[in-house]
Structures are given as C-alpha cells and as structure tokens.
Design a protein around this nucleic acid. Sequence first.
DNA 1: GAGCTAGGTGTACGGCGTACACCGGTCGAT
DNA 2: ATCGACCGGTGTACGCCGTACACCTAGCTC
Lengths: 227, 227
Amino acid sequence: MTTTAGTQRIPLDRDRVLAAAVDLADHEGLDAISMRGLAAGLGVVPMALYKHVADKDDLIDGMVDTVVTAYAATDPALTGADAVRSRILAARRALVEHPWMRRAIETRTRRTPAVLAHMDDVAGAFLAAGYSVDLTHHAMHALGHRIWGFSPEAFEEPPRTPPTPAEQEATLRVMSERYPHITAIALDTATRNPSGACDEQDEFEFTLDLLLDAFARLRDAGWASHP
Amino acid sequence: MTTTAGTQRIPLDRDRVLAAAVDLADHEGLDAISMRGLAAGLGVVPMALYKHVADKDDLIDGMVDTVVTAYAATDPALTGADAVRSRILAARRALVEHPWMRRAIETRTRRTPAVLAHMDDVAGAFLAAGYSVDLTHHAMHALGHRIWGFSPEAFEEPPRTPPTPAEQEATLRVMSERYPHITAIALDTATRNPSGACDEQDEFEFTLDLLLDAFARLRDAGWASHP
DNA sequence: GAGCTAGGTGTACGGCGTACACCGGTCGAT
DNA sequence: ATCGACCGGTGTACGCCGTACACCTAGCTC
C-alpha cells in the first residue's frame, strides 16, 4: 500500500493539503474535517499532514486563507460604497460555494495575510470615498461579519424533517399562542413564499445597503465620534 | 467515595446540572465543558449526567436557556424602539457576565422556548410601535445576533502576549506598509485610547442605534418590501 | 561516500462522547 | 407485607479524536 505499482506518488505540499481539505469540507461539511479522514482521502497516514500544517487550527486557517485569496478583486471602475458593496458581495458568493466558511471564520482568532488584506481593501474603499478614518472604523465594526459575506442569523432554520400536515397544524396552534409575534412574521412571509423560507440573499443585501446608506449620510453630515 | 460520612447526597436534577455547567463555563470557558469534567465537579460519574440531559448538545441548549430565561423583563414603561433597545441591552449585560454565551448561541440550531420567547418579545416590541409585520421581519434579520447582545466582530483581537517595543515597531512598520488602511484605523483609535482597544460597548450601541434609527425612518415613510 | 534534509510511517497516549448492562433504593399497588 | 416498577447513580467499554515521538528512506550537497 506504499505506492500503486509503478506510479510515483507526487509529494504532498501545503496547497494540495489545503485544497483537499476545502474539497472535503465542501462535500461533507466542516465536522467531517479530521486529520485522519483528510489523510485517508490523500492516501497518506495522518501524521504526514503535520509536515505541511502545524496543527488542525493551522489547517483551518489555511482553508480560510485559500478561499479568501480567491475572492475576485474589486472592479477598479467602482468607487466608494459601490466598491465596498461589490467586494462584500464577492465574499458572499464565495461563501455560498463554501458553506463551511461561515463557521470556520467565526471560530478563527489568528488573522492571516489574506484575511488582513480583505479587511484592508474594504477599509481602503471607504477611505477612498471620503469617509474619515474615524467613520470608516465604525463602519467596519457595524458591518461585522458582513464583510465576509454573511450576517449572523437569529432566524436560522434548523435542518428538519418535514412534518406531517397534522403535526404542522398542531405546532402552528401552539406557536401562535405562545409566540404570536414571530408566528405572525412567519405567516406573513408564507403569503409571499409558500415554502416559508426567507430569501437570505435579499435580507443580506437589504441590510448591507441600509448600513451603507446610513454611513453615507453620516459622512455627508460631517459626522465625527470625538468632540 | 460513595457518600461522605453521614452526609446524604442531594439528588441531582436538570437545573443543578445546568447551573453547574454555567458556573464552570463562566470560570473556565466553553471548551472546559466536558461531560467528564462537569460530572467530576458534581462529585458524580459522567454517565449520571445522562439521566438529566439527553446529550452534550442538549446540555448546552439548556445552559443557553438558563441564561436567556434570566434576562430582565422589559420595563413596561418603555415603548417602541426604546423597548427593543432596552431588551437587547439586557441581553448584552447577560452576555458580558457569561462570555461563553456568544459562541454557544452561534452554534445552536435548536430553538428552545426561552430563545423563542426572547425573539417573540423583540418582534412584539416592534409591532407594538407600529412597525408592519413585514418591516419587523426585516428588522429582526438586520439585527441578527445583535438581539442576543453581541455583534460578530471582524475586528476581534486575538489574546496575545504583549510584544516588546522593538517587536511592536517592527510589526507596525510591516503592517503599515502592507495594510495601510487598517493600520491607519488602529493608529487613529490609539490617539484616543492608548491601549489601542476598541470600546466594544460603544460600537455595539452605535450600530444598534444606527439600525433602529434607519428602521424608524422606513416605518415613518410607510415602507413595504412588496409592491 | 558522508551527512543532511524533506517527506512519509508506525506506534502510542490521553482525552472525548456515549451505548449498554447493572444495581440499590423508594414507593405505590396489591 | 410483598412485589414490581421506576429513578438516579455506577462501571465498563468502544470508537473516535488530535498529536508527540521515534523512525525510515530517497535524494541532494559537499
């Protein structure tokens, strides 16, 4: 089981390890990432990976970096809030392709070069559009994880097995009694989208634009946080 | 080691298990929560916990519920966005006391009664203030995790050992060359707060008010998402 | 040819969540 | 008074995890 007859093993390198990890996470989810499983997929013994990544944390940092590095560069024709918007939506596209990124980013603490570069680009777009350093700072805070292409969702749906109509009616009755307001929201959504699901992309862009708009207003008003 | 001479063991119940878990997490962090460690702290064998919680996931759901249940009720004198604001800031106070809540909430999928009740209260406050169901829905999305008292922070600082002044200068030079914009922000912050740290509470309230303000404007303009 | 190095191996350790069989009390029904 | 059910705590064991450490080998440099 060392080498398949005659075929030479191409030696691993960090990029191949990371690419395999990204691929595995894309198909099986972040929880499926284990040093053992990843190694098996590469036809290699688990400890071999440690020649290319420091530890599992470094592996996941590397995966994040791999994806962030691949973000499309901002269209240089865009300026100001449009440049920010375009960069953030590029991040979101990557995020939709790699759903595990969301949780991966949330648990990272080290800031790798690609991550810093993305933050720097977003900040740079604000500054180039005449936002003060001060206001840019606040805008970055306000955008939060939105600059990575997602918003944290209080409303997130648990993956569920579809209930029978009877169950559905029973829970609806209970819900509307105990939680009338969120039930009203759910029912209102359902009138427009029978599946009852929210259009996450819409919500994302809605809030993104709301925030960008609010910040543009502050900029135009000459706002400053310090007296 | 069954029972200390004479003293009767008070039997465990779910609430005592959850309270012990919350306490442990408060002092040692969420990662310190293991069935084995928690059991040891309670002077009990690990499997004993499974008589009171279904599994580790249920344990953490229960911990979240415990804290959320303890949120101060909204001051009934407050109305509208003020009621929302007050409820969210109450959540934030709880979050500061229980730092592990942040990560715990982020990884939850099940929505427990206390969690639903909090969401329902926030939504109810909007509706009571004359926001349409539609607009309330969008506002809840936009607030995202903010209704739990925190915002996801792109800017989060890793816990770090303070570097020597020489190192500090070296990294500053590298940073300001490669990432001029975020460095500018950091330096600007440092002029007002020598530690260079952001005031998270300020940033939180700033964005919260920005959003509440933007939504109030939409309400007053009679905004609706559907034509 | 000696020695170094990079990359892959094998073994082992300590931790985790939890399935499963068990066992001593308490208590209600007979 | 006896029996059975049930409830809370126990003990053992399994399979997974990350990774430390010693090792082996092929190829390269001097």
